[in-house]
Design a protein around this nucleic acid. Structure first.
Length: 583
RNA sequence: GCGCGGUUAGCUCAGUUGGAUAGAGCGUUGGCCUCCGGAGCCAAAGGUCACAGGUUCAAAUCCUGUACCGCGCGCCA
């Protein structure tokens, strides 16, 4: 790069041209609308193109093409990076990067190595990414896996672009659901004790893992539980159950951690909701809201819809509400139940305030699409508490439809027949699972076909990309076998063909792809980029002999392959997918 | 009823925060192994970007409305 990349350089040039015309009175002083420096789709339209003349034409009271010519008249005279430029179409200004500059790029990619594509865009700013946060009441399913991979790769992207990333998992270990888990364990324990099936409690997790938890109980604790089950009149029941519940939650968390480790995903901090309660975090958050006047006691309107809920028993009651409507939400949201207990929403905003108070002014959450309804209210609360807008961005990851031979696999946690994330990872492998999850934008629903992923792994795009990498490594091995040497000449001296230059141009866009993927929170762009790069390489490889007898040609092509290999490796690293040297 | 997301080739989906002639994979049809890894490559066919208006030099992209699909919607977590 040697300081600036071509895109930034050209942007600076155009900025300079514009301010010169402002000085000459052709364009008015002051703020002007923004213009862009783009990569045109058509090769004929150059390597870079700006719409500046079209955007600014009416401010200069000139036709776009005339203004473009006027702008170009001020272009720097001495430089070797741009061969030529032109005014085209309705008024685009197109720039053509010199071949010399492109050839030089190959050497620079190789020299940059694993740092190629990294940037300091984020300027070390702290950002917290909260993801997965699956309830510790059962094994993770495939949908959790998608969120996990999306979040992990997003973190890698933000890290690569210069942000100080903190990864956090929020443990919902304080609610009714974990109580249900504890009671489920007790129920299974009783079944084992009496050696027969018993009618389950109304709320109950039926999965086989609950039995595993019973077997994993430390003997003294299990004895205590059994004693209480046999003789429940003893007032110790609540404390026994509490201990069992905590053990169960820890067991499930260990299980979840194992799944995440298999996918090479880790967290800086596992934040316990219970600890929030213990530190009076909710009280603290509510005090702030109250001090700012965002809480009022009010009546909540009867909710509309809610198909399968009977609404006959709705009763309007007085309770503390957060004035979410002042910050763009649809209705005010309850913070406490009429009996004084906090709602889940209260705990949630307290957690987000806690993040902010730990010094994170930028928060990103990865949520399943089924939590989409909570985005506005949490954002509203954060704005209410901090006085700052846009602290939190939420990336909603759509559902995963598990299929088998094209037919949907119906899963229900209640029936206990769901396919776990672990099943899938063990069958398909971490690389394929990770890559597959990133072959769709997060907003798109994703079909995951078990048979396709397992039985026909060759069709998986990850192999296509990995194969390109392994192929290049293979060239190196072959060269060694044949006793060929690299000359060590500067690859810039080799006259690349048009196809080879196209490949270089595509390698040159890699850093821009990484930056935009990070800024738009769209990790899937890496997968699409890598597939395209692999395709270009395979085509190139098929049509050109790399290990040519002519040392000059061989050296130039080897350098290009090396650069391609580096970018493939860097991109795969960002995705957390291995770049194998042979397959 | 309301909110969020979606609608692009036969199927599954990309489309760089408005750009020039809308792309890929799978599938279909037909080709490429004396040569560095055929897990590969080449070619062909396939489109009213759901529909109707609007905004402007320019709309798959932004705005409004309509249709259909998914998710969500209590004082649960």
């Amino acid at each position: 790069m040697q300081g600036v990349c071509m895109k930034d350089l050209l942007q600076q040039w155009v900025d300079g041209m514009v301010s010169r015309l402002q000085a000459e009175g052709v364009l008015p002083e002051g703020a002007l609308p923004g213009y862009r420096m783009d990569r045109p789709k058509e090769r004929d339209h150059g390597d870079f193109s700006t719409n500046a003349a079209m955007v600014l034409a009416r401010f200069a009271k000139m036709k776009p093409r005339d203004l473009a010519a006027r702008l170009l008249a001020t272009l720097p005279q001495t430089q070797t990076d741009i061969d030529r430029w032109e005014v085209a179409g309705p008024g685009f200004i197109n720039f053509f990067v010199s071949h010399r500059r492109l050839r030089q790029q190959v050497g620079e990619i190789i020299a940059a190595g694993s740092a190629y594509g990294r940037s300091t865009l984020g300027r070390g700013e702290k950002v917290m990414v909260e993801f997965v946060s699956a309830n510790p009441t059962g094994p993770m399913h495939v949908g959790h896996g998608r969120g996990a991979v999306t979040g992990d790769v997003l973190c890698r992207l933000l890290q690569a672009t210069g942000y100080a990333v903190h990864r956090e998992y929020y443990i919902n270990d304080a609610g009714r659901q974990v109580d249900v888990l504890g009671r489920s364990v007790a129920h299974r324990c009783r079944e084992l004790l009496e050696n027969r099936s018993l009618p389950p409690p109304e709320e109950f997790y039926p999965g086989e893992y609950v039995v595993d938890i019973v077997h994993a109980l430390p003997p003294p604790l299990r004895k205590e539980l059994e004693a209480w089950l046999v003789n429940p009149r003893d007032g110790q029941g609540e404390t026994v159950l509490t201990t069992v519940t905590r053990f169960a939650v820890d067991w499930v968390l260990q299980d979840i951690r194992k799944d995440l480790t298999q996918l090479d995903i880790s967290f800086d901090h596992w934040f316990s909701e219970r600890s929030l309660h213990e530190q009076d975090g909710i009280k603290h958050a509510l005090e702030i809201l109250r001090a700012r006047g965002w809480i009022h006691d009010g009546l909540l309107e009867k909710p509309k819809g809610g198909a399968d809920k009977s609404q006959g028993d709705w009763e309007a009651r007085q309770q503390p509400l957060f004035r979410a409507t002042l910050f763009g939400d649809d209705v005010d949201r309850p913070l406490q139940k009429p009996d004084g207990q906090y709602t889940y929403f209260a705990a949630d905003i307290a957690y987000h305030l806690n993040k902010y108070e730990r010094g994170f002014a930028r928060l990103v959450n990865i949520w399943g699409a089924d939590h989409g309804g909570y985005v506005k209210r949490v954002q509203a609360a954060l704005e209410g508490m901090t006085g700052t807008k846009d602290v939190l961005k939420v990336l909603l990851v759509q559902m995963v439809n598990l299929t088998r031979q094209g037919q949907p696999v119906r899963m229900s946690k209640r029936a206990g027949n769901f396919v776990t994330l672990r099943d899938v990872v063990e069958q398909v492998g971490s690389d394929a699972v990770r890559f597959w999850f990133l072959t769709r934008a997060s907003v798109s629903q994703l079909d995951f076909d078990l048979d396709l992923a397992v039985a026909r792994t060759n069709d998986n795009p990850v192999y296509y990309v990995q194969y390109a990498h392994a192929r290049i490594c293979s060239i190196g091995r072959t060269m060694a076998e044949k006793g060929m040497q690299e000359t060590g000449d500067d690859p810039a001296s080799y006259p690349y063909s048009p196809d080879e230059l196209d490949l270089v141009r595509y390698l040159d866009t890699y850093p821009e792809m990484v930056e935009s993927a990070a800024q738009h929170l769209e990790p899937h762009r890496i997968a699409f980029y890598l597939q395209e790069l692999a395709a270009m390489f395979h085509t190139y490889y098929n049509g050109n002999r790399i290990l040519d007898d002519d040392p000059g040609i061989r050296n130039g092509r080897l350098a290009l392959c090396r650069a391609v290999r580096q970018v493939l490796a860097n991109g795969l690293e960002l995705m957390g997918v291995k770049a194998p040297e042979r397959m």
